[in-house]
């Protein structure tokens, strides 16, 4: 989202309360959504639930093309459309809902830094495994990504996307990495997160922040998604505090809230559970 639009949106946003009919759009859950998109979408859902803002999840095959930035997920609130976690956090902040107000300057700097760590390493690793590992891309990624389209569009779009991701990996110096090195990076990232979390319930003690939502979204998705090999989820499983962290957020924000509210929307909102 552009800055001018952002400023405008936040002005508009401040005036209106959060509506009941807010909607989050993502690709089709069963057949289409990919690991990385699913993780980002779950992070946004977790964040909104932590804020106590109700949102209805809506799956659309063309969600990627509906989004203003070309990335999923995006939310439709009142007459505004905002995509990706960072802008959504700013948007809710303008409406007076924020999770990081209680932090001091140093903590806020650390929170932002760890969020970038997740984006820089976990998200990039997910993209790498999806699109650059030949087995995963031919068996899972390309068929899923192109499932809504018919021949020959399905091949064209899938290869176009793969080409784009590979060029990006090239530009950021990941193209030369082997799958082993990528797993090693994921492991390093998880170790850092695990160290930072320590024995606390959330990253900044008692209160969850957007960092918790982001980490939960990625780790939970990796843990509950089946890929061609289990190695990625095995890396996370060796950190017991991260596992119980995921379990804790799932229980507090997904299961309990669902029990309180109507169960209809909840089943749609999150995939398999973690037990």
């Amino acid at each position: 989202m552009s800055l001018a639009a952002e400023a405008f949106v936040s002005q508009m946003a401040a005036a209106e309360p959060w509506p009941e009919n807010a909607t989050l759009y993502q690709p089709l859950r069963e057949d289409q959504i990919l690991l990385s998109d699913c993780a980002s979408s779950l992070a946004v859902q977790a964040y909104l639930r932590m804020c106590g803002l109700p949102v209805r999840v809506c799956c659309r095959a063309n969600a990627e093309y509906m989004s203003p930035s070309g990335k999923v997920p995006f939310i439709h609130v009142g007459n505004q459309v905002v995509s990706e976690l960072g802008p959504i956090v700013q948007f809710t902040k303008a409406k007076g809902h924020s999770l990081s107000d209680g932090l001091d300057d140093v903590q806020r700097a650390e929170m932002k830094a760890y969020m970038e760590l997740v984006n820089n390493m976990l998200l990039t690793a997910e993209l790498y495994i999806q699109w650059c590992d030949d087995t995963t891309s031919s068996e899972i990624t390309r068929p899923r990504y192109s499932s809504p389209y018919s021949w020959p569009l399905n091949h064209i779009l899938a290869y176009q996307k793969q080409w784009e991701v590979r060029r990006k990996m090239n530009a950021i110096g990941w193209a030369g990495k082997t799958l082993e090195q990528v797993y090693e990076d994921v492991s390093q990232c998880c170790q850092a997160l695990s160290q930072r979390l320590g024995t606390q319930p959330y990253f900044f003690n008692k209160q969850p922040t957007e960092l918790d939502a982001l980490v939960f979204g990625h780790l939970f998705t990796i843990l509950t998604t089946r890929l061609t090999s289990d190695e990625l989820s095995e890396k996370i499983k060796s950190y017991s505090n991260l596992l119980s962290f995921c379990r804790r957020i799932e229980q507090t924000y997904f299961e309990e809230q669902d029990r309180d509210g109507q169960s209809g929307t909840s089943q749609l909102s999150k995939g398999p559970s973690l037990i």
Partner: peptide, 18 residues
């Protein structure tokens, strides 16, 4: 310490991304 190593990784990511 281990936590400071984790912070290093995080802030280097912040530099690279932002």
């Amino acid at each position: 310490s281990a936590k400071e190593c984790a912070d290093t990784l995080a802030f280097v990511s912040l530099l690279e991304e932002k």
